[in-house]
């Protein structure tokens, strides 16, 4: 297991360096003066320009600049935002829990609905349930989620007035951040109605973000189940007279889950892309909206480091998924 882990980690090093090179080159290929781009100052004197250039290291050769950049990253220095002047890493860490909360609830919805639907569709193959759910899955898979979010707002916020249009919680409630997860913090605060308000704010964005992963998980579960149901051990279990529930639940489902867990893990990248759109529509204060706002405000230090942090994060999550896969499937580990 240790060698497996080490091999995976070593494999990530070149990818990570590649990510840093892309993030590093980003500012240099932008049209315009990189000093002005990174410092965000307009109409400055030549002296100030030279001073900033030296301060940001643009007077050195490119390779030296890259190693400086890498060195600063290793020390946790991701630069400062032009707009807020705060360190990028601090901003990232403040906004990150909001995105994690949204993403976790979304993947939870997708899994809790997608897996049972896929299993049922496989067991009742060819039935109306199978046909309707798989058509639904294809529609979900093809969904432009930014439009889907707007439709849900029209219906639930506009017509029914059940849910708020934006934000994480009603302004009536105020309590200290403990975990950064609004659902948990609102419970800890003990204020009446705070949890309900947080849940009402969360539900629509989470459903929107869950849509595509849900469709993918349902389809994948169905095909994995169908494959496993044809195996000898399932036939043997059936032949022994075992009740269907046990055959499906114990023999088939456990084996079918292996590819499904990989699929769930692979949705992390999809979720991150989806979070950009979902957070924009619902004004959800997470890193997706932060990136979009920074791009439109030309806050390039934030875009550069945000891109790097998100890619590194996706990479680490993919590694964790790989490891889980190794844990549940010994055949992979020993290969």
């Amino acid at each position: 297991m240790f060698r497996f882990l080490l091999g995976k980690l070593l494999y990530l090093v070149p990818t990570f360096l590649g990510i840093t090179i892309i993030a590093f080159s980003f500012v240099r290929v932008l049209p315009g003066d990189p000093v002005l781009l990174m410092a965000g100052e307009r109409g400055i004197t030549p002296e100030r320009h030279a001073e900033l250039s030296a301060q940001l290291g643009f007077d050195k050769p490119v390779w030296a600049q890259y190693f400086d950049f890498l060195g600063r990253l290793m020390q946790g220095d991701f630069g400062n935002s032009i707009v807020t002047k705060k360190p990028v890493l601090a901003e990232f860490l403040t906004l990150f829990p909001a995105t994690v909360e949204l993403g976790l609830v979304a993947i939870l919805i997708a899994t809790l609905v997608g897996v049972p639907v896929g299993v049922l569709a496989a067991i009742k193959r060819g039935s109306w349930f199978d046909q309707i759910s798989m058509t639904g899955a294809l529609v979900g898979f093809s969904m432009p989620i930014f439009w889907w979010g707007l439709l849900l707002i029209i219906f639930f916020s506009g017509i029914l007035q059940w849910t708020p249009v934006s934000g994480r919680i009603s302004l009536l409630y105020f309590f200290p951040q403990v975990t950064g997860f609004m659902l948990i913090d609102s419970l800890l605060s003990g204020q009446k109605g705070a949890f309900l308000s947080a849940a009402q704010h969360l539900i629509l964005p989470a459903v929107v973000l869950a849509t595509i992963p849900l469709a993918v998980i349902a389809r994948q579960t169905r095909s994995a189940m169908l494959e496993v149901m044809g195996e000898d051990y399932v036939r043997t279990a059936k032949a022994k007279g075992m009740p269907t529930r046990r055959v499906v639940g114990v023999h088939a489902l456990r084996n079918a889950m292996i590819p499904v867990i990989t699929t769930i893990g692979l949705q992390i990248g999809v979720l991150m892309a989806g979070a950009i759109l979902t957070e924009t529509i619902f004004s959800w204060p997470g890193i997706g909206k932060w990136m979009i706002d920074s791009i439109s405000r030309r806050d390039y230090p934030v875009v550069q480091s945000g891109l790097l942090l998100i890619a590194a994060l996706v990479m680490v999550v993919n590694l964790l998924v790989d490891l889980t896969y190794g844990l549940i499937n010994p055949r992979i580990r020993h290969k």
Binding site: P14, T15, G18, I19, I21, I22, G269, V270, M272, A273, I276, L277, M291, L307, I310, A311, V314, M315
Partner: peptide
């Protein structure tokens, strides 16, 4: 691999 490490829409 490096290109695939970024969420596609973000890149």
């Amino acid at each position: 691999d490096v290109v695939l490490a970024f969420p596609s829409l973000l890149l």
